[in-house]
Design a protein around this nucleic acid. Structure first.
Length: 294
DNA sequence: ACAGGATCCTGGGGGC
DNA sequence: TGCCCCCAGGATCCTG
């Protein structure tokens, strides 16, 4: 569920709530996460102070005074929140970090696709990211790198954008929105893109993710930030989840097809399948948002 | 090597 | 109201 903007929001929310706090105790449930929590991790965490927290792609890295690191992935339905200890424990709460003073850091994940793993130090975390070939962050992406990655691939743009080795942090929502705002059809093959189109896509990715972070991400169903607040970017989707609704730019009904096993939304008129627009006109600019027609 | 599909889970929503 | 089927924001493994 959570993609880069949602994970970034969780980290920004949690930072002021947990940095400087000391873990008094770790509790964990019985259900197995995708990468199961090891009970032997609890003891070395006890007494450790949280010194920082950062995001890398869709991963959260929690930095501790003992040099160890907790690497967290929210999967599709994960929630990582700091709340008063008196708050009742929700179903599917897998791990609870009791903090000094009042408050607990809780990891909840109904669908159990998420994980929390302890690494001994920073270099072990870096090794892990290298091991999964995690790609660069989408902001300030090198233009030549992105063109090369896209144009050498026979895959669809949708598949390329979902590949965390190419760019870290984009998921289904923001892949569709990035294609939408760059006027590119998600079923286009990467190798058919011109340099200019690849550049447009790269800029759209950064613009969409930046706008979504400002709105605290998108809440479709479960997502909440680190303080429990929902996101607001779902109200600004141009294509995602808008099947049948009129495109903001041209009023054509948004269509939905399946690509890489995922629902993929697009405007059939604004998003080009070939090298030219089906309308024969210019594609909509990346960074502007057309005023809704009333 | 590459691309695409199946799979791990649970809960919610729509259709009947 | 209840049941069944389908769907879901992700990552990984398997197959062709």
């Amino acid at each position: 569920m959570p993609e880069l903007p949602e994970v970034e929001t969780v980290v920004r929310d949690l930072l002021p709530l947990i940095v400087g706090r000391t873990i008094r105790k770790v509790r964990h449930g019985k259900k197995r996460l995708r990468k199961p929590w090891q009970p032997r991790w609890s003891r070395p965490l006890t007494g450790a102070t949280v010194t920082g927290m950062r995001r890398r792609g869709k991963w959260i890295v929690m930095e501790l005074s003992t040099a160890s690191r907790l690497v967290v992935h929210l999967g599709m339905t994960g929630q990582f929140t700091a709340i008063p200890a008196a708050e009742p424990l929700s179903d599917h709460t897998h791990i609870v970090f009791e903090l000094d003073g009042d408050g607990e850091l809780r990891f909840r994940d109904p669908r159990r696709f998420g994980s929390i793993v302890l690494y001994p130090d920073e270099s072990a975390v870096e090794e892990f990211f290298e091991g999964i070939s995690l790609g660069p962050e989408p902001f300030d992406l090198d233009a030549a790198y992105f063109r090369e990655e896209v144009q050498r691939s026979n895959r669809t743009l949708k598949a390329i954008l979902l590949d965390q080795r190419v760019v870290a942090g984009v998921g289904n929502i923001y892949a569709d929105e990035s294609c939408g705002r760059s006027g590119l059809h998600p079923s286009r093959r990467g190798c058919t893109l011109t340099d200019i189109e690849a550049d447009r896509l790269r800029e759209a990715i950064a613009a969409v993710l930046t706008a979504a972070i400002v709105r605290r991400g998108s809440t479709i169903r479960d997502y909440v930030g680190g303080s429990g607040l929902r996101g607001g970017f779902q109200n600004e989707f141009r294509v995602y989840g808008r099947t049948g609704e009129p495109c903001d730019v041209c009023r054509a009904p948004i269509e939905c097809i399946r690509l890489s096993g995922r629902a993929s939304h697009f405007c059939p008129d604004c998003q080009t399948i070939g090298s030219r627009s089906r309308r024969g006109g210019k594609s909509p600019a990346v960074s502007t948002r057309a005023a809704p027609v009333s």
